[in-house]
């Protein structure tokens, strides 16, 4: 894949980093590192937009809150943000949802191509997984996702909104809205569909998304650092509501 020759040069996937790649857009280089392919300027603009439009500096969000709490405790910025990014590999949002919906879109497309009705494919996925990541949201199950129209418009402008996976993602939404589930497509499904239509495989897409929430995290850390120490999201002892066993004696038990 590559290596460095101190004082001389660096090799990046078979290319001289400081010659052939020195002017590369950072995201283009990042994707090249992941999948070994370069992407067009239009694709890079859409992929940038997918990151930009999900960068929410809201310290209440669970991953961002990690950065804020680390700031409150005066940890380092890098530890704060690294931990917040690792936290983004969550099951109810973030990377676990992203890889699952990308995988489902690929499987659903293959099944439909093989002749299975999409309604059947969707019903089976709901039966097996009790939900489809990418549809509905943990904080607003049936609300329209505010990010979708923005990124879809940008993708349309770039001529990248008409791919097979995007069409499939909307067809799945129609099924889920018509049924009893009342789930709208969220950003995870649209973003995955756009990226799959650019040729990214699900695991490539997952790695591409690693910094997706990054831009929203430093503000959470910085803001907490600007407050008095340990003054971000403080909780009184009374905020703990205990439901466990009644008080008991350890020493007495041991006798």
């Amino acid at each position: 894949m590559g290596g460095c020759f101190p004082g001389e040069r660096a090799v990046f996937r078979g290319h001289d980093l400081h010659a052939e790649l020195r002017d590369a857009d950072w995201l283009d280089l990042y994707l090249f590192g992941i999948c070994g392919r370069r992407h067009s300027a239009a694709q890079i603009r859409v992929l940038h937009a997918i990151w930009v439009n999900t960068s929410y500096p809201d310290p209440r969000l669970w991953n961002n809150r990690v950065a804020a709490l680390a700031g409150s405790a005066r940890s380092t910025g890098i530890l704060a943000i690294s931990a917040a990014l690792a936290t983004s590999e969550a099951a109810i949002y973030g990377r676990q949802i992203d890889i699952a919906i990308a995988d489902f879109l690929v499987r659903a497309r293959a099944a439909v191509k093989a002749g299975r009705p999409l309604t059947e494919v969707v019903a089976e996925e709901l039966r097996v997984s009790r939900g489809i990541g990418g549809y509905g949201r943990p904080v607003a199950k049936s609300a329209a996702d505010e990010r979708n129209a923005v990124v879809l418009a940008l993708a349309e402008r770039e001529g990248l909104a008409g791919g097979e996976h995007v069409k499939l993602a909307f067809a799945i939404e129609e099924i889920l809205l018509a049924g009893r589930w009342r789930m709208r497509m969220n950003y995870a499904a649209l973003a995955a569909a756009l990226a799959l239509d650019m040729g990214l495989a699900p695991r490539e897409y997952y790695l591409y998304l690693f910094p997706a929430f990054l831009a929203g995290m430093p503000p959470c850390y910085v803001e907490a650092c600007e407050r008095p120490e340990q003054a971000t999201f403080p909780l009184r002892c009374q905020a703990l509501i205990y439901h466990g066993p009644a008080r008991r004696a350890w020493a007495k038990h041991a006798e």
């Binding site: 909780l235 009184r236 002892c237 905020a239 703990l240 205990y242 439901h243």
Partner: peptide, 21 residues
């Protein structure tokens, strides 16, 4: 609403300091 439910941990606050157990 900003409370934490737990089956494993309970605290008693110090007199006049709700943030110290």
């Amino acid at each position: 609403k900003d409370i934490i439910h737990s089956r494993l941990w309970e605290e008693e606050a110090a007199d006049a300091d709700p943030f110290t157990a």
